[in-house]
Design a protein around this nucleic acid. Structure first.
Lengths: 337, 337
DNA sequence: TTGAAAGCGCTACCAG
DNA sequence: CTGGTAGCGCTTTCAA
């Protein structure tokens, strides 16, 4: 590894001058600067990130803490986030929180040890404390601690709209498949759902022995195909005419269940989704869905964390959370009754 | 940030002893070690990664250079790779190569500047030189430079099997949709395809004005839905009875095209895919596909890069490339003629 | 077993 | 404008 001292020697200057010439900070005679630049070029000088980080007390690295790298919902945001921070000269360090239980704490620890300047965080356990010693921006979901800056979408309104769409199509026997209430997103989505059904005068009924008639059932499930199948099985023999499955894997589970039982979509069961993985639009029927602006959210989270890092703690400028509106995409999976 | 010196002071020892107590290297009296451990705990000592990296001349960071974070094909491997290196105490730094042209070079530069100890690389431009100053393991594809260790799947055999499946179903008018020949994967897949059709006595014909009869057509396309639609359009009016679309987005494009033109799958057009995104199994018809062991590949790439980093340059031990066999998953999208 | 001290490569300060 | 130098926090000799 070629060091600054070697560049300086070759250019016939001191390390201080070489440093200033390369960084552009402080004044250097133009001729001298050129000599240094040439020497650096010839030696293929790249600098030593660790030394710089040690001296400057900042690493120019941003951490991304997410539940799961293999999830189009997060990676759609991560892609843009990476570009955003890279454009500002930062590296992105990625760690996953939920491969095993207790991993969120562990992931935070290793993030902190790595010396990142700030972290973009998709929380899993909303009650877990979030480190206060460095800038943090939460993405998509938020912790119970409402003081942390966050970039979210309008989950409640989105699901409310989606539900209204179903109601307006004449459905009166509706099921909602949603994640654990632990998540702020699930709570907000449920809230949106309830607003819509209440406004339509429909009551929420228990899953076991539900009374007949106009009704809404809510099932909480893990976000997997299997959980979607299991959740739909709970409605067994008394299937709703419309299902809102607020996660692509849950939705896939519902789709699989319908196939197995010979229920046609959307003729027998209308379906609405959340997010917009590429296959939604091509499925037959194409899936009607509420789609958060994931790319925009990733970009915004990147900008916010960079701003927090570079302009220090004007976090007041950002709380309360940024809400970026999602899009209601009406396709063919909801049919009128 | 609490430093080692502070821990040492609190424990009443020198920094050297504190360092040895914490790292476990070198001998320390058990009682002293306990004092240090307690002091570190009380002070919530985390250490300074930059200082350690500077001193030890290694950062305990691994880079991952991939075309695109928003692609289930890579992220399926990335997820496992991240866990693997994290378990060994390494951080994963991610950079994307193909958001804009020339980005691969740029991404490499910033990787190198960041001081990672090694890089797992999914090459985009196979002719671009790969840095030799640090360990590199290529994943899924390889550069023209055959000396670089790589973790691949058996693309050629896989596609050959897939093609045979189609042939055995009686198809004699087949199209292959595959990526640019630039990619080693595409070349290998094409080779597998050709082996199979040759063995069956079927000739490859040009896309424009193809002669009728038993024939195979090959279309190269970008890996997007739109490109899939465009590629299928090239076969316009003279559609094959079976299509191998060797990428999930290309396949989605074919599916979309078939829908628009009222072609039924698989009755009118049989389809075979590559990879295994979650929706393949639930689609109707469920997609028959050749699925590389992405998780296993990610794990292996992680192990190889760690081995290269920690046991130095016994790269000879690994070249030639590791091939992990994929799985032929027979479902319902290919029908007999 | 232990403490003192050198030095990793860099930036920023200070004197010239 | 420039070179010398201190010092960021750590690990690793080296003597004691």
């Amino acid at each position: 590894m070629v060091s600054l001292a070697e560049v300086a020697k070759r250019a016939g200057v001191g390390t201080g001058t070489a440093s200033r010439a390369l960084s552009g900070r402080g004044s250097v005679d133009e001729a001298t600067r050129q000599r240094v630049l040439v020497a650096a070029e010839e030696l293929r000088y790249r600098g030593n990130a660790a030394a710089r980080a040690l001296r400057e007390r900042r690493s120019r690295m941003v951490g991304l803490l997410l539940p799961d790298l293999d999830n189009e919902f997060y990676t759609a945001a991560a892609e843009v986030l990476q570009s955003e921070v890279a454009a500002a000269g930062y590296q992105l360090i990625v760690a996953q929180t939920s491969t095993r239980l207790g991993d969120e704490r562990r992931a935070w620890e290793s993030m902190l040890r790595s010396g990142v300047d700030g972290v973009v965080h998709v929380p899993v356990d909303p009650s877990a404390p979030v480190p206060t010693e460095l800038p943090v921006v939460q993405l998509n979901r938020r912790s119970d601690d409402g003081e942390i800056p966050a970039v979210l979408t309008n989950d409640a309104e989105g699901v409310e709209q989606l539900t209204r769409l179903v109601l307006e199509a004449g459905h009166r026997d509706i099921a909602l498949l949603v994640g654990s209430l632990e998540y702020s997103t699930s709570r907000e989505r449920l809230e949106g759902f309830r607003r819509a059904i209440r406004a339509a005068g429909i009551r929420e009924v228990p899953i076991v022995d539900p009374p007949p008639g106009a009704r809404a059932r809510v099932v909480h499930a893990d976000l997997s195909i299997e959980a979607g199948i299991a959740a739909f099985a709970l409605l067994e023999g008394d299937a709703p005419t419309a299902v809102l499955a607020l996660n692509s894997r849950l939705l896939l589970g519902v789709l699989a269940s319908c196939q197995r039982r010979g229920l046609r979509v959307p003729e027998d069961v209308s379906i609405a989704g959340m997010g917009d993985p590429v296959w939604y639009a091509v499925w037959s029927p194409a899936i009607t869905t509420f789609s958060p602006p994931l790319a925009e959210m990733g970009r915004r989270a990147g900008r916010e964390i960079l701003a927090l890092i570079e302009h220090g703690d004007d976090r007041d400028a950002m709380t309360p959370p940024v809400r970026l509106a999602g899009e209601l995409i009406i396709r063919d999976s909801i049919v009128s009754r």
